[in-house]
Write a protein that binds this DNA or RNA. Structure first.
Lengths: 340, 340
DNA sequence: CAACGCCTCTGAAACGTTTCAGCCGAAGCG
DNA sequence: CGCTTCGGCTGAAACGTTTCAGAGGCGTTG
């Protein structure tokens, strides 16, 4: 090297500066600065056998819920000196697989994933290589893994109970058609609450737009508006806030007043929910905390290896009541008219 | 190897299958499948001298504008077989530097960056190593680089002219205090338009909330509401849509009708702008196209090297008029009252 | 039958680190 | 003064690929 010193010494300066004599250390550091030398992470990784990267695969990068989760993950990863590869599957199994392949080739230390409906065999393949995988916002399929989830059945209940309390007797659940277990759980919670609250399943209308997006919400709202007044719900629980925002928009566009004529409850409590011009009531999940906890579990498994005990924490969601569901409707003796 | 074949042959099967005899090829492929063999990307990269990754550093991952840009980038990168490392600087120079360091260590093929106000020396360092850097949503500082930008002076003009046409004579520009050139340009466009339209600079009120976020917008709106009626603007151009949504929310919360009492124009035209309960008029930028073009330029520079000619395309923004600015105000002979 | 060319495969070098055994000289000790 | 100890450094191996010169086998040609 320019400092007249062997590469081994340079490595020591970088990684164990205490073992190098101060004079040498300074000389080497000066040379490093002068040459603009930067370690080659690939060579480092190759030799070390483990990389300094973790993977994060989310369902929809355009959904602020996931960017908040990602923030939590990054916080923990950064503190541990790890880089995060953020990948977006767009709820498509093929994209998910492709991303997992790349992450495998990169020999990431571990993967955090919110999987698509079916748990990809690539996930199992990754695990069988010894790469830790933590499921994010998804319950574990067995005991041999970490998973950080939210009690979405409870979440669905909270939302539906809230609407029932306010006197609503015809409620819509607006979910999605992709078969995500999270959505299924929310649905189940709503069904249970409605059944207990009204003694019948007829009070519930289930709608499944194509995607869990704002556009999907608009689509579903249009369907609601198209229903005959007697069967038309007076409120909706949406499987996420994007849907809820879409519903809100479409309702307003058709002159349906929210919450007077139609109440809306969202899910996730993204920042935009509070920022909507009719602020959305929503089921809050600890978004960053979810990411942080998942990352912590992943790091523990990656560093402690066999000593690691799998954990499957389940967070409890809470209901945040805002304007979109504020009006208390009189409990109707007879069906009392409807939308706008 | 398990296929009774040298590693060189395995490499050939993977990279140049045509040069390997069909029988051998199949044997090797079978062994690969049986063993679950996956190439080690680091070793590959080390030997090849170039990685198969590019870096993307954005100002605010929570801003949907950037996730849309990222989608465009990813589209191009994926087609070229490259992975994208998405990094979030949160408009902080120290985080930006840290991310650039990591990307340098990873020897990424190139970096796309929406830099913080000051162009970091790390960017120059990266370039001097021979790593291409393309500025994203930011004008170039000189000819020796690629940059993909939007004519934000024009954008500011479009927004302000629109409001002036609708009769507004007291207009606010709601920017930010971080000194981003993009925001400065928008400001300059608004200033020029207002000066030309009203013959004076007094018609413009400039507000600089701490951050370019929904919270910042609320903060600015509160300031507007606090102004004495005679000096209070009747409309605002916001430096981005998050600010605009915050302004909208705060106005509604105070009973100020939008657009009747206060008109709002946003910037970027993120999806949430159209989805707001009072859909936002906004200056549209070609978000995905911006990302795509930047990625294409980066790849060209990375692959063609010296033959590459730097380009600095500037996209023209367009105004998308929605409800938040729809009401035509009568041109006031005298100051005609004000907010709500 | 020898020479040649072609196809397929092998073996080894190289990429830039980290790590470790070991070397050297100085200091401490008897 | 000689022996030991220890700090500080060197040199080489190893990580898993890719690449390339060249070996070996086989068919063709003169």
């Amino acid at each position: 090297m320019a400092a007249g010193v062997s590469v081994g010494t340079v490595s020591n300066v970088l990684n164990r500066p205490g073992t190098v004599a101060p004079a040498t250390r300074e000389r080497v550091q000066a040379a490093i600065a002068a040459l603009g030398f930067v370690r080659n992470e690939s060579a480092r990784h190759l030799r070390a056998g483990r990389s300094r990267t973790i993977g994060l695969v989310v369902l929809d990068i355009a959904n602020p819920f996931f960017t908040d989760v990602a923030r939590g993950v990054e916080e923990v990863a950064e503190a541990a000196g790890l880089a995060v590869m953020l990948c977006n599957s767009d709820d498509r199994a093929d994209r998910e697989s492709a991303h997992l392949d790349v992450l495998t080739e990169q020999r990431v230390q571990g993967v955090l994933i919110t999987p698509t409906a079916e748990l990809s065999p690539h996930v199992e393949a990754l695990r069988s290589r010894g790469t830790p995988v933590v499921l994010l916002d998804r319950r574990a399929t067995g005991p041999g893994q970490c998973a950080v989830a939210v009690d979405d059945v409870l979440g669905g209940r909270l939302a539906a109970d809230h609407l029932l309390e306010r006197g609503h007797r015809r409620i819509a659940f607006i979910g999605g058609s992709s078969g995500l277990p999270q959505v299924q759980e929310r649905h189940d919670g709503v069904v249970a609450a409605v059944r207990e609250g009204t003694g019948t399943d007829d009070a519930l209308t289930v709608l499944s737009p194509d995607t869990l997006t704002v556009a999907g919400g608009r689509e579903a709202a249009a369907q609601v508006i198209g229903l005959p007044a007697g069967r038309r719900p007076t409120a909706a629980v949406c499987a996420n806030d994007l849907l809820a925002l879409g519903v809100l928009q479409e309702m307003v566009r058709h002159g349906v007043r929210v919450p007077e004529d139609f109440a809306i409850v969202g899910y996730d409590d993204i920042d935009f929910a509070a920022a909507a011009a009719v602020p959305l009531t929503s089921v809050r999940k600890p978004r960053q905390e979810l990411g942080r906890r998942a990352a912590e579990l992943l790091l523990d498994e990656a560093t402690r290896g066999a000593e690691h005990v799998h954990e499957q924490p389940v967070f409890e969601p809470t209901l945040v009541v805002r304007e979109s569901s504020m009006v208390r409707r009189p409990r109707p003796a007879v069906a009392s008219g409807g939308i706008g």
